[in-house]
Simulated scan of single mutants.
Amino acid sequence: MDVTIGAYIIAFFFAMNIGASGTAAAMGPAYGSGAIKRRFVAMLLVGGGAFVGALFGSEVVKTIGAGVIPESFITTEVAIIILLGATFTLFFANWIGIPLSTSEVVVGSLVGVGLAFQSLHVSNLFTIFLCWLIVPVVAFGIAYMLGRGIKNIEPKWTFLHTNSTWKKVLTALVIMTGLVESFAAGMNNVSNAVGPLVGASLISMEQALLFGGLFLGLGSMVFGSKVLETNGKKITRLSLLQGSAVSFTGGSLVIVASVFGIPVPLTQVTTSAIIGIGASNHGFQLREQMVLKQIIHVWVLSPVVSVVVSYSLMLIFIHKDVYTLFIMITVSIATLGSVRFLQLIKKERQSTHDGGSGI
């Protein structure tokens, strides 16, 4: 099979996985609040919104295609390696139902390639990392403040819940804000799939946005159900006003970032907003803490995994350096083995102490 065709297949399959992750980020609040009761309808709406948003994502595509590593290094083979490193990480996360930032895994994969070439646009990379830290915190803060206001308003304005007309208005509002966020998802995240293709000059910008958007929307309907459940119902329950606040917060922040060409973790932004709403309403519950802990672990691990995968693929297929790869694998096995050994020792000491045999 021609390597160019292989690059297209991997990129568009990756776009489908991005659509799956974006479903939870964009329509999780609407689904969790009950504005949309059927999962398929939620995935269908976010797919359409993401497709339209993708058509406006050229600035972020430019960043992914040439803003992290020099464009001259991105050949067809390198584009495939970038996409493989990111796709592997994202597909695994979707399979276990954890909302994952596609921006993190793609930038991580780009960094792995850049390390192999010993060439990175460090200043651009620093800006991206800084936004990854700041934007979710801002989302949490905005959502927390909005949540406090909603908590004071809802008990006083009882007509919002009792009057059928107002309930329909709120339902329409949360769906509309979800569509805004799905638009933001397409605008920011389509670059993660097609950016390497544009960087390698395998496809024009217009074609990249069109086909990337199509497969993004398709992925929402095919792969998105597990992630939708996690973000919509397993973190915290949302009222219609709360769901609108979450989607408005996430969507507006991501659209602003997209205008400046910055790939940001949409799922982190939305999940942070959901947690902000939950914290303003009743503090951190045990269920939310457990889900949040699991998601944070994946967020931290995902870019590291994609760095390692893409760097390893570069060593094998581009540099033909199996010796360095062997050393990497050996060090990884030794590290994992040491961590596991320490865990077993700690567990054994705890068991001894609990059994009354310790000092």
Rank of each mutant, 00 (worst) to 15 (best):
W157G: 04
F126Y: 15
V61W: 04
A42S: 12
L55P: 11
V300E: 01
V227Y: 06
D354H: 14
G212E: 01
W95R: 13
G356S: 09
L228S: 08
T127P: 02
T76P: 13
I69Q: 06
F88R: 00
V78E: 06
V304L: 11
H121S: 08
V107E: 01
A273H: 07
G141Q: 03
V52S: 06
V254H: 00
S225M: 09
S33K: 10
P155G: 03
H353A: 13
S280T: 00
G212W: 02
V137G: 03
S351N: 15
I295G: 00
Q285G: 12
L218C: 07
I82E: 06
L266A: 10
L344P: 05
M205P: 10
P136N: 00
N152C: 13
R340Q: 08
G261R: 03
M187R: 01
T63P: 10
T335A: 03
S101F: 03
I262W: 06
T4M: 08
N188W: 11
S220N: 05
G141P: 11
I316A: 11
M1V: 15
K293E: 14
L83C: 09
G243H: 01
F223Y: 13
G261L: 03
G97K: 05
N189K: 10
V113R: 07
S101E: 00
G243K: 06
S33V: 14
L325W: 08
Q285A: 11
M145A: 13
T89I: 12
V46Y: 01
G57H: 07
V52D: 00
T352C: 14
L197T: 01
V52A: 09
V322T: 13
S306W: 03
V190W: 02
T335K: 09
L286R: 14
V322N: 09
T158D: 13
G195Q: 00
Q285N: 13
F51A: 05
